[in-house]
Design a binder for these strands. Structure first.
Lengths: 202, 202
DNA sequence: GTATTATCTGTACAGTGTTCAGATAAGGGG
DNA sequence: CCCCTTATCTGAACACTGTACAGATAATAC
């Protein structure tokens, strides 16, 4: 019976995802470097060594969490973009801006989780699963840029730099702002800068 | 006598900077999260509690190191830029590119140190000293952009976005490439993208 | 109902950050 | 020269950590 939970603590039923979601809660609060496996176990009500049946070590739990966060971010972005309907140039531009805006808003809301995703933990072992999730975000970006290109809002010369430029600006500004290294009164300024950079006619 | 060193281990003479440089060496190798105060102390040949006369806790040592790294990066950038002499438009463009290139090269060479600077450790407590060092890098960027503007290589409309755009692209691309999230065959492509984004006429 | 298997416990070990009373050495004033 | 003050470092201690491993427990298959 894999759906039962909390019957006794033996055979928890869904320990792997319980570990990840509890880790998520703790990293969200205190940052990745303060995550303790023992605290995670205790919160679930399970012995400290139970986790080792699902993750070989603490680092693996953190990268497991990190990969699930890429999925979470992609979900969040897709949900927001799907709110903007229409096949107009105006809608295409709005979707493109929304893509950047949601990236920033998510990171601003969850700085510790964002830092985990792009810190040391998720860079080393690039599992196939991870790449798939990251590709999802990248494909969404490409889709938006293609749309802009079809509406002739972006030039032939600039199109090849589209992904590099927009992801780098949005990620870079987000990362710098969250870290307190750069101050911008409103992230819309950054989105304006991206549009200007790509030469999107307004 | 404050210049003496290693007479005995009592009164080391320069323990504070020894702590930072040893921490630098260890973080460089294994990343910030694996830095242990006890290992730093042992390497210097000093008791584990000696560090607490200079840093209130482990985190403070890490941010102390981080701040010194901003200085190191700025030094490196200034050294490279000063190699490019001349008051021509061509030289101004080369200096601007060199600014981005050195940023990337430094980070590529020292990924763990780079991650420390822009991770959780150096974002919390923004000491006045820290801001001064970061400002040095920012002022260098502004100087380069002003030069480009004087040579009429960058438009009135784009100039206000100069710092935001160039720093964000270079930092963002660097961070993504180092983390393995983005692949570029050559960073010069990114520098091309920045010039295109700013509309620098080539 | 018994055997098998996956899952979790308990105990143990080495290493960690941090505290604090006390040892040590340097420098200043007689 | 010696004493005394002060900064500096030691040593032992505490609570906590990640991790390993032998054994207990419960679900599953026959």
């Amino acid at each position: 019976m894999t759906t039962a939970r909390a019957r006794s603590h033996y055979h928890h039923g869904d320990l792997e995802s319980a570990l990840i979601s509890t880790a998520r809660k703790l990293v969200r609060q205190d940052g990745a470097e303060h995550l303790s496996l023992r605290q995670v176990s205790q919160e679930i009500g399970v012995s400290p060594s139970a986790a080792y049946h699902y993750f070989p070590d603490r680092t693996s739990l953190l990268s497991g969490l990190g990969f699930s966060l890429f999925e979470e971010l992609a979900d969040f972005q897709e949900k927001e973009i799907s709110k903007i309907a229409g096949n107009s140039a105006r809608a295409a531009r709005e979707r493109f801006r929304a893509l950047g805006r949601t990236y920033f808003h998510w990171a601003k809301k969850e700085p510790h989780l964002f830092n985990l995703m792009f810190g040391d933990f998720c860079s080393l072992e690039k599992s196939p699963q991870n790449q798939r999730e990251e590709n999802r975000a990248f494909i969404n970006l490409t889709k938006c840029l293609d749309e802009l290109y079809e509406f002739n809002l972006i030039s032939d010369k600039m199109r090849p730099y589209g992904e590099l430029l927009s992801w780098s600006v949005v990620h870079g500004a987000t990362s710098l702002i969250i870290g307190g290294h750069l101050e911008v009164e409103d992230f819309e300024t950054t989105l304006d800068a991206v549009e200007l950079a790509l030469g999107i006619k307004g």
